[in-house]
Structures are given as structure tokens and as C-alpha cells.
């Protein structure tokens, strides 16, 4: 089974704070990390390989620094890493990103299963998976929480939905986006860390992908960000202290005065 895992490098967010003076994000010294959801995709790829044989190829599109994310993925157990990097790719929206990823997947493939995290924690769109699948002309399933198994060229999946989950069978090749519940990623092994340092990471540039300039980067992106701003902060809350009885009384009084119903049976 030929498996591809697409990962994204995102700013490590644990230390994100808003600068109280300028109201902007402070990310001083924050390292890029692998998008947390992509780690579940990677682990699932490795598990598929362990069960059905094959190889796991990790792809990442982004500026040259994504190489560190790819090497990290190799330390967890990916067989090879490919970086999709070119100045002309900067400013890609989800459609242009998907077109570029699809071109790379086509060159490196064909793959039986392509895995991604459900969304990246910086953009939060979750659109690149389905859009990539469409560019490749293969089906996709989002929010996968379990791969029950593969038989022949059919894969049985559980997909998270509001109020429950859906069991379905889908054909291979397929693109899946996964949720956290699907597995618990393993830590990097010593051997993996060694390999990660030694294995060459292949680079695919715009020329390698042979994509028309007008379909990549800014010019291939139908959407354009015209304004970025920080959301207005809450105007400062009312905090009650003291004895629980009085504090609760004050809280309920304040809610009542503000016209906020505290009970969905009576209130709404």
C-alpha cells in the first residue's frame, strides 16, 4: 500500500499571547511545529503500513523551514519526505494549495491512501483536503475517527458527525482527513531520530510540478485577504469573590439584570 501524509508546519501556539499595547499576536521565539492534527494522520499512515505493508511518504508545502517538520515526521516513522517549496507558491489560498499538493501527489504517486489532519490550527479552514481530492479526481472522507480495515480496494471507515458517527465503505484510492480520536501518536524512536538526520529530503519546486504560474500562489488564489485585525476584547467581566452564598447571589442578580436566562427550560 502506498500511503501519503500531507503535513503543515504551523506556528507553535502554546506561548501565543496578545500584546496588550498593540493588540497583536506575540510569537517571539516560537518554533514552527507540525500541525497537531497532522500527527494523528501520520500515526494512522504508519499503522496502515504496519498492517498492510507499503511505504509512507510525507509531503509538506511551505517555505524552506518546513524541512524541519518533514525530518520530525521521518523520526516518527515515515519512510521518505518531500518538500514542496517555491517562492511562487507564497500567498496560496486553499484552492491554490490544493492544486499544488495534487500536482506533487500525482508526480510522486499514485497513492492508495492520502491522509491529512482535519484542519490546520493556524488557518482553521479544513478545506485543503476535499479540494485536493477533487483536483486528483478521487473521493474523500473528512473527520475520520477509525479505519476499520481494508479489503481489496475497499476501505471501511467511521466518520464523526454531529450526534454520532457514520460507518461507510469507500473505494481506494482515497483521501482522508482524521480527528484526534483516531489514535495516540507514538513518540519518535532513537532509530527514527537517526534516520531523520540522514535521509535526504526531496524538494519539488514550481518547475518540477510544471504548473502554470496563473494557478499557483497569489495569482492562482481566487480569495484575497483584504484586512487582518484582532477581534474586540470582552469589556472586562464582573468577578465576584467572598462567601459562595453571597457570590452566587451576586452572580445570579447580575445575570438577571443583564437579561440573561440561566435556565434553558424556562429561559429560551
Amino acid at each position: 500500500m502506498k500511503i501519503a501524509v500531507c503535513i503543515k508546519q504551523v506556528p507553535g501556539t502554546t506561548e501565543v499571547q496578545i500584546n496588550p499595547e498593540t493588540g497583536t499576536l506575540m510569537r517571539e521565539g516560537v518554533e514552527g511545529i507540525i500541525n497537531p492534527f497532522d500527527l494523528y494522520a501520520l500515526e494512522e499512515g504508519i499503522r496502515l503500513k504496519e498492517k498492510y505493508g507499503g511505504t509512507v511518504t510525507v509531503l509538506s508545502m511551505g517555505p524552506p523551514q518546513v524541512e524541519s517538520a518533514i525530518r520530525e515526521a521521518i523520526s516518527y516513522g515515515a519512510d521518505e519526505g518531500v518538500m514542496i517549496s517555491d517562492r511562487s507558491f507564497a500567498g496560496s489560498d486553499t484552492l491554490a494549495t490544493a492544486g499544488t499538493l495534487a500536482a506533487a501527489l500525482r508526480i510522486l504517486g499514485p497513492f492508495d491512501v492520502i491522509l491529512m489532519g482535519r484542519q490546520a490550527i493556524d488557518g482553521d479552514t479544513g478545506q485543503v483536503g476535499p479540494e485536493t481530492a477533487e483536483h486528483l479526481g478521487i473521493p474523500h472522507v473528512t473527520e475520520v475517527k477509525m479505519i476499520e480495515g481494508v479489503e481489496g480496494n475497499r476501505i471501511t471507515l467511521r466518520r464523526m458527525l454531529e450526534h454520532g458517527y457514520l460507518r461507510l465503505k469507500a473505494p481506494l484510492p482515497i483521501l482522508l482527513t482524521v480527528v484526534k480520536e483516531i489514535n495516540t501518536p507514538r513518540p519518535a524512536s532513537f532509530k527514527g531520530k537517526l534516520r531523520a538526520r540522514q535521509v535526504p529530503v526531496k524538494i519539488l519546486s514550481g518547475k518540477d510540478l510544471d504548473l502554470a504560474p496563473k494557478i499557483v500562489g497569489l495569482s492562482g488564489s481566487p480569495t484575497r485577504v483584504i484586512r487582518v485585525f484582532t477581534p474586540p476584547k470582552p469589556t472586562g467581566g464582573k468577578v465576584f469573590t467572598g462567601e459562595p452564598k453571597e457570590a452566587v447571589q451576586s452572580l445570579l442578580r447580575a445575570l438577571k439584570e443583564a437579561g440573561i436566562p440561566m435556565n434553558c427550560k424556562n429561559g429560551s
Binding site: L95, G126, Q127, P130, H140, E143, R159, E162, S221, T223
Partner: peptide
């Protein structure tokens, strides 16, 4: 911006080669 919507609309946007803004 539901599970279905966030799966179906990107697929449609890619078919129509147009822009989609999530959520």
C-alpha cells in the same frame, strides 16, 4: 459550517474553480 458543509462545499468550490471562505 457543519461537518457535511465543510466537506461538501470545498469539493464544490474545487469543481467550480472558485474561492471558498470557511466558517
Amino acid at each position: 459550517g457543519t461537518v457535511m458543509g465543510r466537506s461538501l462545499l470545498p469539493r464544490m468550490a474545487a469543481k467550480l474553480r472558485t474561492g471558498l471562505t470557511a466558517d
